[in-house]
Each structure stands twice: as C-alpha cells, then as structure tokens.
Computed example of a mutant assay.
Amino acid sequence: MFGLNRAEVIGRLGADVTVNHLTSGGRVANMSIATDESYLDRNSGDRQERTEWHRIVTFQPGLIDMLEKHATKGRLVYVSGTLQTRRWRKDGEESDRFSTEIRLAPGGRVQFLDKPNGANGNGTPAAQATGSDNGSVASGGVTDPAPATQDDDDIPF
C-alpha cells in the first residue's frame, strides 16, 4: 500500500515556542502558526479574511534547541512535516478529544523567512533547520530572506 503524508504551511507564529519536559526525560516543542485566506462573500460581494491556525509539534532535540532561540511571536515561518491526529480523554469526560498537528519528525523542515525582531539589517541569513535521523540540526543560510509583507497592525494575533 502506498501513501503520502506531507503538510506545508507558511504563516506567522502566534506565540513564542513552548517547550515542555517529558517524564521520559525528553522534550517536546509546540508552536501555533496562523495562515490567512481571503475570499469574496457570495451574498454581499465583500472581501472577507479568514485565519486558520495550525499546531506544530516536534520531539527532535536539535530542532527544539534552534526553535528556542529563534521561534518568537510574529515571525514568518515555513514548516514542512507530516499530519498526525492524537486522541485523548480528559478525566471526568465521557467523550474523546482530537487534535490534528503538523509533526516535525526526521526529514521535517523549519525555515524562518524574515529577520528576527531587533535585527540590525547587516544581512545575517534567516535561520533554517532540517530534522535528521539523529535529531541534530543541519543549519544553512537563506541567501535572500523574504521581507515581511504585513505591518504589525495586520497580524491577526
């Protein structure tokens, strides 16, 4: 049987990355990325904006280290990973809860497409990382990072 499970998004981080420690001794990083879509309302003909939020998760130690340094609210980021749906039940509840996330496993990719806040404009390349089989981060530069296209007032968070 064959299949393809790949998810790619470009959007802005809704908050700084959150890193939690697991009872097993490992760590997990979580992020939320907002993507915007505009469309014409059928009834009024007005242009409407809709924001979709995407949950991102990784257990890769080297990638977590990079995210702790660079993943801050408002940064423009490209993420490539796989979709994963988790199911759990809270104590005292009778029904299951579900969460679909983009998982950054080995082979996943994160690339920041803008300069961090407070950058001095000296041409420092944007941060880029790729998950690898051993959990390390392969760093590289982006020769011409895309400038941010929105003012802070236009960010939906």
Rank of each mutant, 00 (worst) to 15 (best):
N122A: 09
A15K: 07
T149R: 14
Q150C: 00
A7H: 10
A129G: 15
I33A: 01
A105W: 02
G107D: 15
H54V: 04
G131Q: 11
H70E: 09
K69V: 12
R87S: 15
L83M: 10
L13K: 00
G3S: 06
Q84E: 12
D151H: 13
H70Q: 15
V9C: 01
D16A: 02
R27A: 13
G121A: 01
V57S: 05
R50A: 12
A119G: 09
L113N: 08
G81I: 06
Q84S: 12
S132M: 13
L67N: 09
D133F: 07
T51N: 08
V142W: 05
K69W: 10
G108I: 01
L67K: 02
K115T: 04
T72D: 00
D133V: 09
A148Q: 14
F112W: 13
I155M: 06
R97C: 10
Q84V: 04
G107Y: 03
M66Q: 10
S132L: 11
R42D: 15
A34H: 06
M1H: 13
E93H: 13
T51L: 04
Y78M: 06
A129P: 03
D152R: 03
P147R: 05
W53H: 02
T143N: 12
A15E: 09
I155L: 13
Q111T: 02
Q48N: 03
H70T: 00
G74P: 04
D91S: 09
L76E: 12
D151M: 01
Q128N: 01
L13M: 12
H21V: 12
G26W: 12
N30T: 15
T58G: 07
A29M: 05
I102R: 02
I33V: 15
N43I: 08
G11W: 04
G45P: 04
I64K: 09
T82A: 14
S38F: 03
V79T: 04
D65Q: 14
I56W: 05
Q60P: 00
Q111E: 14
G108P: 07
F112Y: 13
N117Y: 03
A105L: 14
G45D: 07
S44Q: 02
T18H: 09
E52C: 10
G121Q: 11
E101C: 11
R6I: 13
I56T: 03
D153S: 14
T58L: 06
F59W: 15
D91A: 15
D133A: 10
G25T: 11
P106D: 03
M1W: 03
R109T: 06
R103I: 04
L63E: 12
T58W: 04
A138H: 14
N120P: 02
T130L: 01
N122R: 15
D152V: 02
V28Q: 08
F157Q: 00
E94H: 08
M66R: 13
G3T: 02
R89H: 09
N117M: 08
L4R: 13
Q60Y: 10
T124H: 10
R97W: 01
R97K: 09
R103F: 15
